[in-house]
């Protein structure tokens, strides 16, 4: 049976993990490779590394980092942040990334999705969507949720799929950081209207939230950051719990 995936997300700045991560059993928590390897040992199904560096030097550091991740970690990983054109995608895939996540650049230039799919295959192309529910409508935002667009969640996700996206990573801005559960109604509608997998992001606070996002939100995967980084939920415990709740998961420990 296909397992529901649990995906920790790491924010990277100048080649180091950003959030105040605190792990007792690894030497350098600032090193994304060590942290990623620890999550892999704990049973994470995939990893996402988001580069939030703005500088040119920082970008080069990130590409070097992607190469080190590919050399050292034996589960799939997606990289995102700062991808503007096909050349950026080529650089990251050549460094060893399995998938790239495209967000603002896809909204500004939807052809980029088609180009990535045509050149590298749909399987590498994750389209990330940040959307906010306002007056009964889900509006897509640019630049980490700062700039509203005229794109709506469901039609944009459908268009991304038609252009060749391999997955949709949907972050609900209403739910992100609030820890009150995922946007299950919107997720279920999204998942049922698409023929590609949907990754849910934003709102994870408890283990029950993960059960609900799979059972009610019909998500194929769930992504979270701080609850894993701050040990609020340990991945082995989460997987055991989900298994008991009848959610198909991959147990490693």
């Amino acid at each position: 049976m296909l397992a529901k995936r649990i995906i920790p997300c790491l924010d990277i700045k100048d080649g180091q993990t950003v959030k105040g991560v605190n792990f007792v059993n690894i030497r350098n928590v600032g090193d994304p490779v060590e942290l990623g390897a620890e999550y892999s040992r704990q049973g994470a199904d995939e990893l996402v590394f988001l580069d939030i560096t703005a500088s040119h030097e920082g970008r080069k550091t990130f590409v070097d980092l992607v190469r080190r991740i590919a050399q050292n970690i034996s589960i799939p990983f997606t990289v995102g942040g700062g991808i503007h054109e096909l050349k950026d995608v080529d650089t990251l895939l050549s460094a060893g990334a399995d998938k790239v996540s495209i967000n603002s650049a896809a909204i500004k230039n939807p052809d980029l999705i088609s180009e990535v799919a045509k050149n590298f295959g749909s399987q590498v192309c994750t389209v990330a969507i940040d959307a906010k529910l306002e007056d009964g409508e889900w509006t897509c935002f640019l630049n980490g949720g700062r700039i509203p667009t005229d794109k709506k969640l469901f039609s944009w996700a459908k268009e991304a799929q038609e252009r060749g996206a391999g997955e949709i990573l949907f972050t609900s801005m209403n739910h992100d950081g609030v820890k009150q559960g995922f946007a299950n109604d919107a997720l279920a509608r999204l998942s049922e209207s698409l023929s590609i997998p949907v990754i849910a992001s934003g709102g994870a606070g408890t283990m029950e939230h993960f059960r609900d996002v799979f059972a009610e939100g019909k998500a194929d995967a769930a992504l979270a950051a701080s609850i894993f980084h701050f040990h609020e939920i340990a991945i082995p415990d989460l997987k055991q719990y989900l298994k008991q709740q009848g959610v198909p998961v991959r147990l490693t420990c």
């Binding site: 397992a3 399987q123 391999g166 023929s195 997998p197 194929d220």
Partner: peptide, 15 residues
């Protein structure tokens, strides 16, 4: 794809 399984590609971990 069929009624029960509507996602293609087959992506992720399977037994």
């Amino acid at each position: 794809p069929n009624e029960q399984v509507n996602k293609v590609p087959h992506m992720g971990w399977n037994t």
